[in-house]
Computed example of a mutant assay.
Amino acid sequence: MAHANHTSSAAHGHGHDDGHHDPEALRMMGFWIFLITDCILFGTLFATFAVLHGSTAGGPTPSELFEMGGVIAETFILLTSSFTSGLAVLSMNRGDRKGLIGWLAVTALLGAAFIGLEVTEFVKLVDEGAAISTSAFWSAFFTLVGTHGLHVSLGLVWMISIMLQLRKRGITPVTRRKVGIVSLYWHFLDVVWIFVFTIVYLMEVM
């Protein structure tokens, strides 16, 4: 009887343990599902862009208006921010909270600089007669590049909230998971931007 009790309490303890780990695993799985749906979203936007890329309706063409200097600067900034987000994860793995917050702050600043350049580019294009309603090409362009920009902005808000949590609570299993996820998300946005840079800008200019 004692043996049976011991077995049931052990089983109960094991179940409780599983319950403790599950929320973290579920959140990680939720993130991967989110990333897959994001891949589908961007895939659809790229396909739409590919179909509409010549439809300028006699209006301004991308090769006339694109300024590659600014786009190259945006690319360099985003690639650098991907590197600094990697350095943040390295600091976290060493248990260096100050370094972790510092590198996340640098990453967020670079992300903000990227958004600043993108907004400037959009304002210039609109001034030069290329708005979202000008033609099918410009609609596809603003939708695709703007959606990526919105994702970067979301990443910035997310990163700042994680920095505040780290300041308050330090490096815990929960903040570790959050830093890991935001870093993965940031690398994903970097990969998407490389496709944007190649397909939207380089191919149109060439």
Rank of each mutant, 00 (worst) to 15 (best):
L166D: 02
W138A: 12
L154S: 13
R177I: 11
F188P: 00
A136F: 06
T172M: 13
S183N: 07
L166P: 01
F114Y: 13
I162T: 03
F142A: 08
D190S: 15
L117R: 08
P173E: 13
D190Q: 06
D127L: 14
L154V: 09
I162K: 02
E121S: 14
V200Y: 02
H151V: 03
V196M: 06
E118I: 00
F141C: 11
I181P: 00
I171T: 11
A136Q: 10
K124W: 08
D190R: 02
L164Q: 12
T147C: 13
A112T: 02
G155L: 13
A131F: 01
I160S: 12
I115P: 00
L125N: 01
F142W: 04
G111K: 10
V157T: 10
G170H: 07
Y185A: 11
M159T: 15
I199D: 09
K124V: 07
I160A: 15
A136L: 10
V152T: 09
L166V: 06
V179I: 11
L110R: 12
F141M: 07
R176F: 10
V192P: 06
R169S: 13
W193F: 15
T175W: 06
H187D: 08
V200W: 01
H151D: 15
K124F: 11
G155H: 04
M159L: 14
F137I: 07
A136D: 08
I132F: 04
W158P: 04
E121T: 13
A140R: 00
L164H: 06
R177F: 14
V182Q: 06
V200M: 07
F137T: 02
F141K: 04
G129M: 03
A113Q: 08
T198V: 13
V196S: 04
K178T: 01
I115K: 01
W138D: 09
V182I: 14
F188W: 06
I194P: 00
D127I: 01
M159I: 10
F197V: 05
F142G: 06
V200R: 01
T134F: 08
W138R: 05
L150T: 12
V179G: 08
M163V: 04
G116N: 09
F197A: 15
I199P: 00
H148K: 05
V126R: 03
L189C: 10
H187R: 09
A112F: 00
W186V: 04
W193V: 11
V157P: 01
G111Q: 15
S153Y: 05
T172C: 15
H187N: 09
W193S: 14
S135H: 03
V123N: 12
E118S: 09
R169I: 03
